[in-house]
Amino acid sequence: MATDPIHQFQIHKLVPIEVGGVDFSFTNSALFMVVTVVSASAFLILSARGRGLVPGRWQSAAEVVYEFVAKTLRDATGSDGMRFFPLVFSLFIFILFANLIGMFPYFFTVTSHLIITVALAMIVMGTVVFYGFRRHGLHFLKLFTPSGLPAPLLPVVTFIEVLSFISRPVSLSIRLFANMLAGHITLKVFAGFVATLGSLGVAGVLGAILPLAATVALTALEFLVAALQAYVFAVLTCLYLNDALHPGH
């Protein structure tokens, strides 16, 4: 029971709310989203409060994050894309903090649920489609038609391009969700081995050394994955926004 690796992902209602037959309950997932937003805001607001010309430790950390995301976005989309900086920065910070907060024992990992990552991916794709059509009109559809292609091939290739475009939010959301889910399950399973083997006497305790070492190594790996997946999500967001800014060429 204590070593059930799926138990950590269960959602339970903290404050049941129902509006017109629709469930709007405040769940543990919602609670940790609030924790994520509050801690991320606190980090950025408090660290930038000093406004030192020579930044202190906290202000340095905040500036590094800011410049890192700004550089990623500028490299992918040019200075034209900096209008999307608030979106990309919010997504990056939210996912990073949600992933890192999920690393605390007994905490809930918001990004380990597909519905959350799908919502984040749909924000990105919605922005790409909306902005692409608003800025380029029907020229945005050039994204799907490679130039210099023989006419008979055009419908097939265009259709494959459309499918490839639709699969983007799918892969964007599945990648983040699968990484967090798989990582946390692996961690829990290996940690569960330690507890189970440890209750089997001397030989068991000796045998438990191996999974314990694996758990320590996996914890380090999970911290890497937490930061890396936030980065990957931000980079892909930049690439997709680039398509909205410069379709076809």
């Binding site: 490839s164 892969s171 599945i174 990648r175 990484n179």
Partner: peptide
């Protein structure tokens, strides 16, 4: 996993369509 997710997503979308 990034490459895997890209490929699987394409096949999934095709299957759903």
């Amino acid at each position: 996993l990034r490459l895997g997710a890209d490929f699987v997503a394409g096949v999934l979308v095709g299957a759903v369509f």
